Amino acid sequence: MFPIRDENPTIRPPVATIALIALNILVWVFVQGAGSELPLVKSLCLYSLIPGDLFHHAPPGTTLEMTQDMVCSLDGRSGIPTLITHAFLHGSWFHIISNMWFLWIFGDNVEDAMGIPRFLIFYFLCILAAAFSQIMADPAALSPMVGASGAIGGVMGAYARLYPRAYVHTLIPLGFFITTAAIPAIYMLGYWFLIQFISAIPAVGGGVQIAFWAHAGGFVAGLILIGPLHRQDYLEERNRMEPDKTAKYRL
């Protein structure tokens, strides 16, 4: 299922959400060369998260074959910053467009319940939670991990807890046909989490190229972190804006 839009108005402009989308796009264009092979490979070599390198499981002199003609040496990499930098890198146009679309659909409403400073703290905590979820699945992995998906999973977890009955208009593929439906967020996002979790189970110990544990871990982190980081006065403001709603926003 792919979200098109949601029926969930905001009160405050999504400044932080827009800034994060802009930062990801700037990195994609100016650091990763908009997908050009050489800058893309170089960015993955320098700034992606490689668990086996972070925890020094890889012996000195280890190299990774990035393409048929390019290798990446793990010697001299600065591992700790990659816990954050990896979340602003992407592997393809589809990767960044889909991630930024999900962030746009769900980020504005989550930011609306927090305000700018809390939302940015929340987002970076979700990056770390997602990273460590993937690392724990295979601490010796040498596959580069990139993408904002884990942090966006956190945004989706927060959205599911904040606005479970908000309708999300979604594309649904049915074989050769594609239809649309307005689905309550709790079902659409719950289905997304279930798929990530089921897909992650065979990934323990490696062998899967998609960071499913990061997605699932980020989602759970978002569910938890929205509790202490939301602003109840902002949710009460939503209640006053929509007085006819039977389900009030309160955590």
Rank of each mutant, 00 (worst) to 15 (best):
A130T: 00
P39Q: 08
R231A: 08
Y167V: 12
M145E: 11
Q232W: 07
H86T: 05
R5D: 14
N24C: 13
I172C: 05
F124S: 09
P117C: 06
F94S: 14
W28V: 03
G79V: 07
T17I: 10
S48H: 03
K245M: 09
N109L: 01
M145S: 09
G217K: 06
A129S: 13
I50K: 06
E65N: 11
K42Q: 14
I186Q: 15
S199E: 05
S149Y: 15
Q68H: 15
T82I: 09
V29F: 13
F122L: 03
S149G: 15
W28R: 03
M156G: 02
W213H: 11
A19E: 10
I135E: 01
F106V: 04
R231G: 06
L223A: 09
F212S: 12
E236F: 00
Y47C: 07
L251T: 02
V208Q: 14
I11R: 00
G153C: 06
L23M: 11
Q209G: 11
A58T: 08
K245P: 04
A34D: 10
T62R: 05
M136W: 12
G76L: 00
G147W: 03
P14I: 01
R118Q: 09
D244S: 15
Y187H: 10
T10W: 12
N109I: 01
T246A: 13
V31L: 05
M188E: 13
I172Y: 08
P144V: 06
M1Q: 15
Q32D: 10
L223S: 08
L46M: 13
S133F: 08
D69R: 14
F102P: 08
G115Y: 05
I210M: 13
S199I: 00
G35P: 10
I25G: 14
E37P: 07
E7P: 06
I18T: 06
F197T: 15
N24E: 12
S43A: 14
A247T: 09
D233G: 03
H169D: 13
T180I: 09
R12D: 14
I96G: 06
L189P: 04
L162H: 02
A113D: 03
G52K: 01
H57L: 11
A130N: 01
L49A: 06
V71H: 14
G218L: 02
A200N: 00
A130M: 04
V31D: 04
A22N: 03
A247K: 08
G76C: 00
S133G: 06
A137M: 00
M136E: 11
F212K: 11
N99M: 11
L125W: 00
L225F: 02
E37K: 09
S43W: 01
W104S: 10
Y191K: 11
M145V: 15
G33Q: 03
V110G: 03
F88P: 11
A22T: 10
G175M: 02
Q232A: 06
L194H: 05
P51S: 10
E65H: 08
I172Q: 01
R12E: 15
H95P: 00
I183D: 02
A166T: 02
G147S: 01
H215A: 15
W93F: 15
L83Y: 05
S92I: 10
L225W: 00
A22R: 05
F2R: 01
W213L: 07
Y163L: 00
A148V: 08
D233P: 02
I135W: 03
L64Q: 10
L44V: 14
